[in-house]
Nucleic acid binder design. Structure first.
Lengths: 230, 230, 230, 230
DNA sequence: TATGAATGAGTTTTCATTCAT
DNA sequence: AATGAATGAAAACTCATTCAT
């Protein structure tokens, strides 16, 4: 049972998260003050410090949440279309995922600017360490039930599933994922935000080609002929 | 010939550069104030504004300079050893360059933290646009004679030379360079600063493998058998 | 008999006293917050206000308690050695008492700093006004049974006893005691905490000489020749 | 020559001193904010920090100045009446001085409350260390020309003069002065502010008697018969 | 009695920028 | 070009106190 107090408490936290996110996107992190955040969130200034150590603490939690959500959303969307157009190969799976993420970023440039180049292992770290099977045993844990960061292990398991089903030999699947995410996140920022050295649309073929080649490096010999890029 | 007056003038500018760099590395950008910088540089507060618009202007110039210097240093070091142990292939050239840069970052972590993920096209942009043959036509330009950013086009020309001599088919060599630099810079930060998902030394083989594969994607068919990694 | 409930109740009060005292000594009064106190005392914030009006109320009670305890401890220690080495004169009694207090302060400098220059009539006031024979008539008063402040009248009575037994003519013994305590407390602070104008050990002979002279002023004529200082 | 800038600068400092003193007396130290001070002083908030580290720094400097001024004023007043009614003995000199100080405190209770029991060696310390003959050799020193703390050595020299002219044997005249000042300051606070254990007027005879006795302790034998108290 | 989340006015302190010299 | 005292808006953060539970 979630008591009234806990519900109220979680409301405050969520409200702070929500409105801080709004402000960070629109005014930028540096130009957003704690006063701005609490005013929009309709809580007292001191309340902020009940939930977060300072503005940086809030930002870090937010980046983690948002980054995780983006990965999960893309993966979920992919899963939903699995029946109609299955990603028949692992490479197809990865490239489609990347494409979804890139499209998301292109239509959410402020968000990309905010999480900047933080879509990286800072988030992914949680994937492996988080215990997938633990059951919350106290009421406080309830508050984190819809914490996307906690769901990242699901993302990782699905990724492993896709990898295992395909014919790859990869002793460190985590490092493969890391490599791809770093490359995608980093170049997306440059091409989308700075449009340098070119636009995302111009760059996409080159990016896909690079990812293709990276994956190819882990393919089992006999299958090297096939190509997932249509 | 640089006159004493020019030297003195340059002293202020470079003193500001020098001490700001020191402070940014040791205290971090946010925690360094203009007061700190002018105090260490032994110039008056107002003088700062004669040379820089604000702290961000100074930082951006600094990141560009330092980043450019790192690339050039690595390349120069490579050129010096060219006679004794020539990089016989383009891939060898690239991997050795990467290795030098990674080693540099590993022993200059504060510097890596500072230029952070800014070692990117923000800098490389200058490579193509900067006119290699312009001659400084006023005394002010003298100050920038040894500006590493202006030398980046040299770096790029050498890179193109190495690429041309090898048997690659690459219609956009700038995008290839961009891809590699983004990947290296981004993953260096994660592995060196956060040691996540693993240490740099652990990651190196996987990084090299990825770069190898990316380059392989541009190789002319008949040469695919050779491998530059010893 | 003190029931468990009363004990528990007293636990909260004395826990607050105890931990507040700790914090005041170590962090200083101004830098200690009510939050600090209740956290250490393991009671809720609101509970503080059930026992004390505010931080100043707590401090004042604490200063009174501690000051009284110091005086009583010194006197008790003196009483215990009375048989083996009796203070044969009133002057001897006073100087020994002072010496015990000074030694106590020297090994409890933080405490001296806290009660600062408050070891004064702020406390002694209670000596004369407090009714020695009243009996607590409600359970709440039980909590104060071992209140050192309430025992100060005992201290004063013993002082009067010693004075009366000796051959002094003093119409206002309270003002004599006041004078001595002000002088001792005030100069102890300076010499122990600031070591200015000299250390306590250097100052002691001069302080004893002054007290000796002050007492001498109340001596009956025929005895002026004797001197209690060995 | 005092430049305009220095004059202006000193004006700000004085203004801050002056108005802070006003506020500390009337609202109390704790209830006076830096905002209050700068508002009254008509300077910007940041300017405060150009002159003082924080509120405590300002207070300490102020206590020292005021305390020194009180001592000097009393002594000066005494010197002025020296011709009409000379203090024929050293004891007369001291008791008259004390009397002037006590009268001053009685009609300036807020001031007494402020400097509290700080009229002590915290101030007197400067007496001995300050070099009486140094001449300010730079313009900055001009700012301190009317610093009463710096004049304390004059007070001390006059005290020594009076002591030397009389027939006393005192190896540590500084400790004698310290003793008297601690006793006077401390008991003045209690009797004037708390009226405990009695009023100042009630206490005065006892205080004078004590001081008389203390001085008596340093008198040369042959003169012990005389008594300065009329 | 006891709790502790919430409050929000209030405080200190910082620091980029200006401008008279 | 160079100075550095002065500015003052704006920021972070505190903490005594309340009150619904």
């Amino acid at each position: 049972m979630v008591t009234k107090v806990q519900a109220k408490k979680e409301n405050k936290r969520s409200s702070l998260f929500h409105h801080a996110y709004d402000l960070f996107l629109n005014k930028g992190f540096n130009d957003t003050t704690i006063s701005d955040i609490v005013k929009k969130s309709d809580v007292a200034k001191g309340t902020f410090y009940l939930y977060f150590k300072d503005k940086y603490d809030l930002r870090d939690q937010l980046v983690a949440r948002v980054s995780a959500q983006i990965l999960l959303d893309a993966q979920n969307k992919l899963e939903q279309t699995k029946d109609t157009e299955p990603a028949q190969t692992f490479e197809g799976y990865v490239l489609k995922l990347i494409n979804l993420i890139l499209d998301h970023f292109e239509s959410n440039q402020m968000q990309l600017r905010f999480i900047s180049k933080n879509l990286s292992w800072g988030v992914l770290r949680h994937m492996l360490t988080h215990r997938p099977d633990t059951v919350p045993d106290d009421l406080d844990a309830v508050a984190d039930l819809n914490d996307p960061v906690a769901d990242l292990n699901l993302f990782y398991r699905r990724y492993l599933d896709a990898l295992t089903r395909a014919n790859y030999h990869c002793d460190r699947p985590d490092l493969l994922l890391f490599t791809v995410i770093e490359l995608v996140g980093s170049s997306a920022y440059s091409t989308i935000i700075n449009e340098a050295p070119c636009t995302l649309q111009e760059y996409k073929p080159y990016l896909f080609r690079s990812v293709h080649q990276i994956l190819e490096g882990y393919r089992m010999p006999e299958q090297k002929a096939s190509n997932a890029l249509s």
